[in-house]
Structure formats: C-alpha cells, structure tokens
C-alpha cells in the first residue's frame, strides 16, 4: 500500500485545540512539513506564545518551551545562545509579537539572532475573546473597538515586516497569506526556504502569515478569507521584504 498523505513526523498525534476554519493548524503543518523535509526535528527547539497557539508546545514534536506573553524572541535568544548546535523557532500571534512583545522582536531581529520567527496575523486577539489587536484594520469592530478601530485615536495597524525591514541584520523577511489553497502552497515554499536558511545558520528569518479568525470575526471560513483579502491585504501586502541570499548571488 502506498502512503499518499500522513501526519508530519514533526507534529504529535494530539488533536488540535483550534476552532473550525482556523488556519493555525495549516500554519503548524507547513512548519512541521518543512522540519521533516529538511530533517531538522531532532535538532529543533521551538517556542510557543501566549494566545490561541499557546498549546503549540504540545503539538510540535520537538523540544518546546512555553514563553510569557511577547517574550518568545528573548527565550529563543537564550536557547540558541545556550545550544548553538540546535535550531530554534518561535511561533507568535499579533498581540504577542506586535503589541506586548515589540521590544523583544525588534531587538532579536536587530541582533540577527539565528532563529526563525513565524508570525500569525489575524487582526484580532482570539483566545481572550476577540479584542482589538495591534494589527486590527481601521474601521474593524472588535470587543474593545466596538465602534470600529479609529486610526486617529489608536493608530494604524502595525506592519511587522515593513518595520523589521528597516533593520540591517535580518536575513529573510516575507509576508505570505493562508487565504486559499494556492496561497497555502506558495506559503509552504516560503516556510521551507526560511527553515533551510535556519538550518544553514544564515541569520534571522521572519515569516508573517496573513490569516483569519472566523470565530471572533463572526463569519464563515470562506467569508473570512474574502474579508481578509479585501480588508487586510491592503494594509499587509504579500511579498518579500528582505532576502540576503539574493544579495549573496544565489537567487533561486
């Protein structure tokens, strides 16, 4: 019998705790597949955040640490410095990375820590029940922006890739989306690339996933994808913001 599809070895057999239609499971799978394909699992340490993906430390089948809210890049720094022969990644949401953890992500990126940061942006705080995120788009209603985000009062959404691309040290920065099967397949290639750079100790690598939250947005998964395409992508354009491998003359 030929195996056509199976669970990546880098994921445990625990059932995900995510809502129906949530893209965290897809993002997990892309990362796990890259870990399998690059044979990195036995030398991998990951850091889970606070947020919906707080239990990621149970889902990835490698060494895992659970960080305080926003502190994953600091933990990852300590881990990579403690065990330079290991590979390290963090998995963070928008509140975690772009609000409470802004200092940690900016300085880990600025030091050029040899880690990969996976940033899942769905414009809302999911686990605490749908509050405004630093990436909530103008006009978007959440439980703490009940009249819609007013950019004159609370500012515009933070664009993490653009912000980090002002720093010299990062090796690779790219924003991808998880809004359709085609986009997911494209994202898979980007994840593989970043993980390969991680394995090769190239430097700091960063991937932002534009994602959705059907539960807290109060829509179906299909409607969520359409809404994100229309409302999030204008603020979070898909594309590469840094690829030093091209500067090094090894374009793929």
């Amino acid at each position: 019998m030929k195996v056509i599809a199976e669970r990546p070895k880098s994921l445990t057999d625990l059932q995900f705790t995510y809502c129906p239609g949530c893209m965290h499971g897809v993002a997990h799978r892309l990362i796990a597949e890259a870990m399998d394909e690059l044979d990195m699992r036995n030398n991998m340490m990951g850091v889970a955040p606070v947020g919906c993906s707080v239990f990621a430390y149970k889902f990835f089948d490698c060494d895992m640490a659970e960080a305080a809210h926003g502190r994953a890049p600091a933990l990852a720094t300590g881990m990579k410095r403690a065990r330079p022969d290991m590979h390290v990644f963090t998995y963070q949401g928008d509140g975690d990375l772009a609000a409470i953890g802004t200092a940690e992500i900016i300085h880990a990126a600025n030091r050029g820590e040899h880690i990969t940061v996976f940033f899942v942006n769905n414009a809302i705080y999911g686990m605490t029940g749908g509050q405004m995120a630093p990436t909530t788009v103008p006009g978007m209603k959440t439980t703490t922006s009940p009249y819609g985000r007013d950019e004159n009062d609370i500012g515009y959404p933070i664009q993490a890739c653009e912000l980090l691309a002002t720093l010299r040290a990062p090796y690779f920065i790219e924003r991808v989306s998880l809004l359709s099967p085609q986009e997911i397949l494209k994202a898979k290639k980007t994840v593989y690339k970043a993980m390969k750079f991680n394995k090769e100790e190239r430097g700091f690598t960063f991937i932002e996933f534009v994602s959705t939250c059907p539960t807290n947005w109060g829509v179906t998964p299909a409607e969520a994808s359409n809404w994100a395409r229309e409302n999030m992508l204008p603020y979070f354009p898909i594309g590469n913001f840094r690829d030093k491998s091209k500067e090094e003359g090894e374009a793929k």
Partner: peptide
C-alpha cells in the same frame, strides 16, 4: 524583562 526571559530560555536548555 528580556534579560530574565533569555535566562529562562538558556536555563530550559
């Protein structure tokens, strides 16, 4: 804050 969390990560190793 970051320093103590770096300690947390390194100690976990």
């Amino acid at each position: 804050v970051s320093a103590i969390n770096m300690v947390y990560g390194a100690s976990g190793c």
